[in-house]
Lab assay of single mutants.
Amino acid sequence: KYSDMIVAAIQAEKNRAGSSRQSIQKYIKSHYKVGENADSQIKLSIKRLVTTGVLKQTKGVGASGSFRLA
């Protein structure tokens, strides 16, 4: 599940300011076997996790910027 992968990526990075979408994508692609549409799936999952309150956006708008666990 992409949401689990995103949470794992943010936990692994341990950046106080949060993790960027690009760094999350890079982590997921190197640690998991994902399909061609992974980028758009990650983007959608990040937006969903922010609206449900699992992630907090520290910089930027939408799916860009930095995110950390709430």
Rank of each mutant, 00 (worst) to 15 (best):
I10W: 00
R48M: 14
F67M: 04
Y32C: 06
S3H: 10
A12E: 04
K29P: 01
K29F: 09
T58W: 06
H31N: 08
K1V: 10
K59R: 10
K47I: 13
L49C: 04
S40A: 12
S30E: 13
T51M: 14
V54A: 04
K59L: 09
H31M: 05
K56N: 06
V34I: 06
G18Q: 04
K56P: 00
S45C: 15
S64T: 14
R68K: 11
D39G: 05
K59G: 13
S40D: 12
S20E: 03
A38L: 11
E36H: 11
K33G: 07
Q25W: 09
I42Q: 01
Y2K: 01
Q25T: 15
A12Y: 07
A17V: 07
S19C: 12
K1F: 10
Q25Y: 11
Y32E: 00
I24R: 00
Y27A: 01
A9W: 02
A70Q: 05
A17K: 10
K56Y: 12
G53M: 03
F67W: 06
N15P: 02
K33D: 12
R48A: 10
L69C: 07
G18M: 06
A8K: 07
V54Y: 04
A9V: 02
L69A: 04
A9K: 01
S23R: 06
G60M: 06
G53H: 03
K43M: 13
Q41I: 12
L49T: 01
M5T: 01
A8S: 06
Q57P: 07
G35F: 04
I46P: 02
A38N: 03
I42C: 03
I10L: 07
S19E: 02
R48Q: 11
H31Y: 05
S30F: 07
N37G: 08
Y2S: 02
V61Q: 11
V61Y: 12
G18C: 15
S3A: 13
R21A: 14
E13L: 15
A9F: 03
L44A: 12
L44D: 15
R68Y: 15
G60V: 06
T58L: 12
S40I: 12
N15C: 13
A9C: 15
S30A: 12
A8Q: 07
S3Q: 11
S19L: 10
I42R: 00
I6M: 00
L44V: 08
N37C: 08
S20I: 03
Y32W: 07
E36Y: 08
I24F: 04
K47Y: 12
Q57F: 15
I24C: 03
V34Q: 02
S45L: 10
K29D: 04
I6A: 01
R16T: 10
D4L: 11
K56R: 11
D4H: 12
G18Y: 04
S30G: 06
V7T: 04
D4E: 13
G65E: 14
I6P: 01
E36R: 15
S40K: 15
K26Y: 07
Y27I: 02
S45R: 05
G62S: 07
F67I: 07
K56V: 15
S23W: 13
R48F: 14
R21N: 06
K14A: 14
I28H: 01
S30Y: 06
R16K: 12
A70I: 08
A17I: 08
K59T: 09
E36L: 11
V61S: 12
Q25A: 13
G35Y: 05
Y27K: 01
R16F: 09
A63I: 09
A17W: 14
R21S: 09
S19H: 04
V50Y: 03
G62P: 04
K26V: 08
A9S: 02
K56T: 13
A12N: 08
L44Q: 11
S20K: 04
D4F: 12
A17F: 14
Y2D: 02
K29H: 08
I42F: 05
Y27P: 00
S23E: 09
I42T: 01
S64R: 10
A8W: 05
V50E: 04
Q22V: 08
K47T: 09
D4W: 14
E13M: 15
S64C: 13
I10R: 00
G35D: 10
S30T: 12
T51E: 14
A38S: 06
K43F: 14
A70H: 06
S64P: 10
Y2F: 10
G62A: 06
Q11H: 13
A38H: 05
I6Q: 00
E36Q: 11
K29M: 09
K29I: 07
E13Q: 09
R16I: 11
G35M: 05
L55P: 01
A17G: 12
Y2I: 10
S45I: 12
G65F: 13
D4R: 11
S20D: 06
K1H: 10
K1D: 13
Q41S: 06
N37Q: 06
F67H: 04
A12P: 00
A63W: 09
S66W: 14
E36G: 11
D4M: 11
V54M: 06
L69Q: 05
I10A: 02
R21W: 15
I46Y: 01
L69M: 08
S19Q: 03
T51Q: 14
V50H: 00
G35S: 07
T51I: 13
V7L: 12
V50P: 01
Y27M: 01
Q25R: 06
L49K: 00
R68D: 06
Y2L: 10
T52K: 11
S30D: 12
A63D: 12
D39A: 09
F67R: 03
V7N: 01
G60R: 08
D39T: 07
G62L: 05
R68W: 12
S45P: 01
A38R: 02
L69Y: 05
N37V: 05
E36I: 12
A8N: 05
A9M: 02
S45G: 12
G60P: 06
G60H: 07
S30H: 08
A63L: 11
D39C: 14
R16G: 11
L49H: 01
I42Y: 02
V50M: 05
L44E: 13
I10H: 02
G65M: 14
I10M: 05
Q11N: 07
Q57W: 15
